[in-house]
């Protein structure tokens, strides 16, 4: 494995017609399997930074290197190939409500499927493909919802379907944009538990934007803080009372035991 899976150098994002940059001179390095929280007030540029990482927001200056390849200057075709390795879990889960759950989940596989296979799966899914969707759903504890209409699921369930879609994508990096913004506190902890466990157990790197610094402290060993487009803090984040404790320990104690996710490695192909 390489020492850095994501390297960002002096990234500035400034769309046309905007006077001040949304992201200004952002630099950081992410190692494979590293879990990072990106905290900051709304409007600090967190979402924009995530979108620049997966290439859906063009960079004004600076470079984004993903697995050794430039994202910011990629042509559409090679960008599409790069995007297969990066799963984005959007803020409002952004599923297609009229599709069945398994169709939304397997949308994660579209990057590696041919166009013909993608169209065939919509009308006529094979047993093996459904089994893959089933495995991903079981990891997010939604195994019984395989054939449900997505619109009939609750907000928390839809958020977990979006996570299952990200798992099917077999990424090396997951970008989660405020994954708990629309959830109640109990559900928020469940979803964070799930994301962190899945990332830790499979060695997938995770960048997760969060509003709440306290949750970030509990779940993430490294925290990046953004203020009006700039990265102002980077590093292990400790409260004074917990200074002695290793930040990873406290949160790992809260997570379910590793044995609960037996299919993880298989589903992610690692």
């Amino acid at each position: 494995m390489q020492a850095s899976m994501l390297r960002i150098d002096g990234l500035t994002v400034m769309p046309h017609g905007v006077k001040t940059p949304i992201c200004a001179d952002v630099s950081f390095v992410l190692r494979p399997g590293e879990r990072v929280a990106l905290v900051g007030a709304s409007g600090a540029g967190k979402t924009t930074l995530l979108r620049a990482i997966n290439g859906s927001m063009p960079a004004h200056s600076g470079t984004v290197l993903l697995n050794g390849m430039r994202v910011d200057t990629s042509h559409p075709r090679s960008l599409r190939r790069l995007r297969r390795t990066v799963a984005m879990i959007p803020q409002k889960h952004d599923l297609v409500p009229r599709l069945h759950v398994y169709q939304n989940v397997m949308a994660g596989a579209l990057g590696r499927w041919s166009a013909a296979r993608a169209l065939r799966f919509l009308l006529w899914p094979l047993a093996a493909e459904l089994a893959e969707a089933q495995r991903a759903l079981e990891q997010v504890a939604l195994g019984e919802k395989l054939r449900a209409r997505t619109a009939t699921l609750s907000g928390g369930q839809q958020q977990r379907v979006a996570i299952a879609r990200a798992l099917v994508q077999q990424p090396s990096l997951i970008l989660a944009d405020e994954p708990i913004a629309s959830l109640d506190p109990g559900m928020a902890r469940q979803v964070l538990d799930l994301l962190c466990t899945l990332a830790r157990d499979s060695g997938v790197a995770l960048v997760c934007t969060l509003h709440q610094p306290d949750l970030a402290e509990q779940y993430f060993p490294r925290i990046l803080t953004m203020e009006s487009g700039r990265l102002t803090k980077d590093g292990p984040y400790r409260l004074a009372t917990e200074a002695q404790r290793e930040p990873g320990q406290q949160q790992d104690a809260r997570l379910p035991p590793r044995g609960l996710m037996p299919d993880m490695k298989q589903a992610l192909g690692t």
Partner: peptide, 23 residues
């Protein structure tokens, strides 16, 4: 938003239309 989400998986344009725009 859902269209961008499907496109973000690296799906081909045809697949984006079939899995997001059409439904």
């Amino acid at each position: 938003a859902p269209v961008l989400a499907v496109a973000a998986t690296g799906a081909r344009p045809v697949a984006v239309v079939a899995y997001a725009t059409l439904p």
